[in-house]
Nucleic acid binder design. Structure first.
Lengths: 138, 138
DNA sequence: ATCCTACAATGGACATTGTCTAAGTCAAGC
DNA sequence: GCTTGACTTAGACAATGTCCATTGTAGGAT
């Protein structure tokens, strides 16, 4: 993720302690934090960071294409730093655990013209739902 | 949708004016109303219906499997009465218009075992994103 | 190194969406 | 036509997210 900071700086992003902390919190694989979780972890590193700043920064990272918004449940949006490797999500219906998955095939090609209603289709999100091993054992 | 009312009555659902109105509002194809929109249309037919009742009734219809919850944007949940014909959604990124679509192929079979992480996968939601003809023309 | 200034952060009010509760109301069976 | 338990209501509350006026500061200019 450290290259993220470099990329952003190269795009003229003004670097602040708050932004750095938010970017650090988002580092990793299978990371899907809500804005509030990001805020909580950011506060641990930088106690005076405000909620608004976390929301603003997350929004900017999404706009810049460095982070994806995911809403697997219908509560808070989650933020996925793995934006450069297209993937979909597998969600446990019971505990909410999320894994990144890479299906074979391309769902875009599965949508015939007759089902496009004149739309220009540019993307697709796929969410698989099921039960994770831990919840299945319990 | 009138058979819906019959089905529900057969399941021991107590029939009230409020529930009837909510069911009527949800009738149709390509209907994807938010709870508030349902409430607004219900009020037009039955002015004293309360917000809580609309939420309760929608929740019950979802539990009974007669209506699906859809969250295509990250704002309010939408309610799709077309629960008995499996389908996915195509959403305009600009105006939010939603169409029901029926892709060929089954995305479930596109998820290899190696990408299931031990989960028991039971379902999948697909959301196509693009631009509708109206917005493309503007 | 210091100053300037535009951009960023802050905190708190506000908005939206959804849930809960206590009290009143009514559908359906007797 | 009663009774009863399920349904409805209004409004308080909760969770998530947005906005705005003020204060602070990163980074270029001097």
């Amino acid at each position: 993720m450290s290259d993220l900071l470099e990329r952003l700086r190269g795009r003229g992003w003004r670097m602040t302690a708050q932004r750095r902390v938010v970017a650090e919190v988002l580092d990793g694989d299978h990371v899907h934090l809500t804005a509030d979780e990001v805020h909580a972890r950011a506060v641990a590193k930088l106690p005076e960071i405000s909620r608004a700043t976390v929301y603003n920064t997350l929004g900017e990272l999404v706009t810049l294409g460095e982070v994806l918004e995911v809403s697997t449940d219908r509560r808070a949006k989650r933020y996925d730093p793995n934006a450069h490797r297209p993937h979909h999500h597998l969600v446990c219906a019971q505990c909410g655990a999320i894994r990144d998955v890479h299906p074979s095939g391309n769902p875009l090609t599965d949508l015939p013209d007759s089902e496009r209603f004149g739309f220009t289709v540019s993307g697709v999100e796929v969410t698989y739902r099921g039960t994770c091993p831990t919840c299945a054992a319990a």
